[in-house]
Design a binder for these strands. Structure first.
Length: 490
RNA sequence: GGCUCCAUCGUCUAAUGGUUAGGACAGCGGCUUUUCAAGCCGUUAACAGGGGUUCAAUUCCCCUUGGAGCUACCA
């Protein structure tokens, strides 16, 4: 049997990072079993529909390298298209099918029309809640005579269609992650499957489409676990073979509540904007709740796919460890080619300096210091000479006198004036020359390098002096040294 | 409240009916070094509690506690 899995986002806004994880698991599962990855857009909620959300979803998937084999996708101009023999893949375009299915259920006596108003339902639930009862539809409309129902439908009276679930017995189903799970039917509400606007709800639409699209494995968030009996009921009602289910746990805030916007970013787009690389996100999110081998953290997509196993997914929710995300990203940043890295830092670096020459020199030094885009400007500033005078008491190393510091700086100054321009081409050559001079004079490194570094940076903590000389260039470096000597002489 | 799911270091996780309970991030310490960063080395830290089953339980079962999800004409 060929594996067919679907990603089924609803176009209601950004992609939640938890949603991304399900999508990654879909993709890894398809990879692993050489199956088909399908993208179906579940747009049945017209009220929450956000224009452009489906397109944005596709674009983000594309940058993450998750490309469906079938279903909805975008063309080069970011317009929605669809491919594949099981269409339409835009759910509302399947409304006719859903409605026919609902009618079939009514005919089978497994669903019924309900004319209750929102107000009545609300009152009913409030009464049930107040008396400590579970809130469930009281089946008032089930008592309506067929004739009565018929005339009200003829009159065009707004109504919904509800599932008529059994009121006794129980269902047991197997979850690929959690094992067997049992629910009593009496706990299951008569779910609305067709809304008053004629559009199916998730429960009918997803099950019907999953069947029509021959989906073999439904991988979805844990929030769907308790509605699975309703879905099973629908499969059973039509005599369909249900797919296998895998309910993946939720992602959590540091306080262990469901990951929410309030406590940090949850949208994939915002992580991408912050400069987390696609490979970082893929690697990191895949490992939230699952690990192919315990002693490794870095995996390529292919390696993840090779080991992917639904039954090995953890059953408990996972708190997102943002420090680890940063660590992973700095790892992947170090893997980037020089060209790719300079593209990565370009916009942020431009905020600090426009000079392409200086940009180029700083670029190489940023590698070890950057974990994400927001780090770039702050760190790059260290490599740009400041106009402020360095503080004399900061320049002097330990018990050093101003005179001694001046002598050391003068020596560096003289050296910088006589070395060939080629020595300025890398921090390393500057280091060699300066250390050589220090040795010749019989000085210690600290007594020269500390004053030199503070002179250049003006700070107690900064990058090494050689890197600063290198990025500042001869003119600015000498100017800083002169400035420091002035301050020390005062 | 009801139903369902879940429970190993602070966090992500591994393993196991008998182990010094392993790895990673963070933390701490050291090396390197003129400081910071990076790198390298080392280190602190966990089986939620109580009952069983068993020669033996972190592992299997039950209960408690705690957490989460669902309880919509949202997905």
């Amino acid at each position: 049997m060929t594996v067919r899995v679907r990603m089924a986002p609803s176009p209601t806004g950004f992609i939640h990072i938890g949603n991304l994880r399900t999508v990654i698991y879909d993709a890894l599962f398809a990879d692993r079993h050489k199956g088909t990855l399908i993208l179906r857009i579940e747009d049945t909620d017209q009220k929450r529909f956000v224009e452009g959300a489906a397109e944005a979803f596709c674009r983000s998937l594309k940058t993450l390298g998750i490309i469906p084999d079938e279903g909805m996708w975008i063309d080069d101009s970011s317009k929605l298209i669809e491919r594949g023999p099981y269409g339409p893949y835009l759910q509302t375009k399947r409304t006719d099918i859903h409605q026919a299915r609902a009618k079939e259920l009514i005919e089978k006596g497994l669903a019924y029309r309900c004319f209750c108003s929102a107000e009545r339902l609300e009152e009913m639930r409030k009464a049930q809640h107040d008396s400590g009862q579970p809130t469930r539809y009281d089946r008032a409309c089930l008592k309506l005579s067929p004739e009565d129902v018929e005339t009200r439908v003829q009159k065009g009276e707004p109504h919904v269609i509800r599932l008529k679930v059994p009121d006794q017995g129980s269902v047991t189903f197997h979850d690929e992650i959690r094992g067997d799970i049992t629910f009593d039917w009496k706990e299951i509400d008569d779910q609305v499957i067709i809304k008053a606007d004629g559009i199916a709800t998730y429960h009918l639409a997803a099950t019907s489409d999953d069947h029509d699209m021959e989906i073999t494995h439904v991988i979805r968030g844990e929030e769907w676990l308790s509605s699975t009996p309703k879905h099973l009921f629908i499969y059973q009602a039509f005599g369909w073979e249900p797919p296998k289910f895998a309910h993946v746990p939720l992602l959590l805030n540091p306080d262990r509540t469901k990951l929410s916007k309030r406590q940090g970013d949850v949208s994939v787009e915002s992580y991408l904007e912050k400069g987390y690389l696609p490979e970082t996100l893929l690697n990191f999110v895949a490992l939230l709740g699952w690990n192919p081998t315990a002693d490794r953290e870095i995996f390529t997509r292919a390696e993840l796919a090779e080991h992917f196993d639904l039954s090995k997914i953890n059953r408990s929710g996972a708190v997102v460890n943002f420090e680890k995300l940063d660590w992973l990203n700095s790892h992947y940043l170090k893997q980037l080619s020089e060209e790719a890295f300079s593209v990565y830092i370009h916009d942020e670096l431009a905020k600090v300096t426009q000079d392409p020459d200086i940009q180029k020199r700083i670029a190489g030094l940023l590698r070890d210091r950057v974990a994400k885009k927001s780090d770039i400007a702050t760190i790059a500033t260290d490599f740009i000479p400041s106009n402020e005078d360095p503080q004399a008491d900061l320049i002097r190393w330990k018990e050093q006198t101003s005179e001694d510091a001046i002598t050391r700086l003068h020596a560096v100054r003289e050296l910088l004036l006589i070395i060939p321009a080629s020595d300025w081409s890398a921090p390393a050559t500057l280091e060699t020359k300066i250390k050589q001079m220090i040795a010749e004079r019989g000085w210690g490194n600290g007594e020269v390098l500390w004053p030199l570094r503070v002179t250049l940076s003006g700070k107690k903590q900064s990058p090494p002096p050689f890197e600063l000389l290198f990025t500042f260039g001869e003119k600015a470096s000498l100017a800083r040294i002169d400035q420091a000597i002035r301050v020390l002489s005062a």
